[in-house]
Design a protein around this nucleic acid. Structure first.
Length: 283
DNA sequence: CACTTGACCTGTCCGC
DNA sequence: TGCGGACAGGTCAAGT
């Protein structure tokens, strides 16, 4: 999905509109995208919204059952209460009138007639009902890495968790080691750290680890401030776009000048994923 | 074990 | 224009 800044943006927007709303019906348009019995949540009232890694967690009166949402690559959450449709001209009535769209997979109806749409073009995303702690832990067993904005996100912990003979970019993407970073912020974060994506993680100096921890937090904070990246599918809860795509440092900038030294950005494939870097600035 | 590849899907873009 | 192939923000299972 959507990486940490995009999911965190949505989480904050959901907090603004969903608390105390009571679910009246869950309408499933594509069964593969909803796991669990939707009836379990009908008549339940939302009490809390959290984010862990790239997953949104919706809580009701008790800890369980709760509802997890993963947007994977192309998921969207759009809230329509009929009120926020006209301001700033865009998105507008036409946007909301287009819902449900061809890509709407689930619609959550609330007792006040407002609706939450889950759209997903590629259908990798899902909503999942979690009924117990065991169930919850199982769900997060591979997504349990350090949260970049938690107090334990120190360079020392980063070094301990990520130390390996693999390329640094691949271990940064490993959600069991650090949670929330995906391909965009791995690329731009490494550029800010002046580290080549191919550098073996166990070859970094303490200075490098300090730099990396600082740079990752910096790039994620900046994107969060800009409302995340709306490169193709990602949009906010009200249909508007984030702006980080206008501030990419190296991501998707192959053959374009490096923002620091003007030499062309290179693209390679690492772990099967597009990897962008400046061969001059990054060592 | 650690690491790599393929799979899940739909759409867009680029080269021939 | 049309067609084939590569690629796209993520993660897991099955290979080696």
């Amino acid at each position: 999905m959507p990486e940490l800044p995009e999911v965190e943006t949505l989480k904050r927007q959901l907090e603004n509109v969903l608390l105390n709303k009571k679910i009246s019906q869950i309408e499933i348009l594509r069964s593969k995208n909803f796991i669990g019995d939707p009836k379990v949540l009908e008549t339940k009232t939302i009490t809390q919204i959290k984010r862990k890694a790239k997953v949104i967690i919706i809580y009701f009166q008790k800890e369980f059952p709760c509802l997890l949402v993963h947007l994977k690559m192309t998921g969207q959450l759009i809230f329509d209460d009929q009120k926020n449709r006209v301001f700033g001209g865009h998105p507008n009535n036409d946007f909301f009138a287009s819902l449900p769209s061809k890509y709407t997979r689930v619609i959550i109806h609330f007792s006040d007639n407002s609706k939450l749409f889950f759209n997903d073009q590629r259908t990798f995303g899902w909503l999942k009902i979690i009924s117990s702690q065991v169930n919850f832990d199982q769900e997060f067993k591979n997504l349990n890495g350090i949260e970049p904005f938690s107090p334990i996100f120190t360079w020392q912990n980063l070094k301990t968790n990520l130390f390996s003979s693999r390329p640094i970019k691949l271990v940064i993407l490993d959600q069991s080691k650090i949670a929330g970073i995906g391909n965009i912020y791995a690329n731009d974060g490494l550029f800010l750290s002046r580290l080549l994506p191919t550098r073996k993680a166990n070859s970094l100096s303490d200075k490098d680890w300090q730099n990396l921890a600082k740079s990752l937090k910096k790039i994620l904070s900046l994107s969060l401030l800009l409302g995340g990246t709306s490169q193709t599918n990602y949009i906010h809860l009200d249909g508007k776009k984030g702006n980080y795509q206008d501030h990419f440092l190296v991501y998707r900038k192959d053959n374009q000048p490096c923002p620091k030294c003007q030499n062309p950005i290179q693209k390679i494939k690492l772990g099967g994923r597009g990897t962008f870097f400046c061969p001059i600035c990054q060592k």
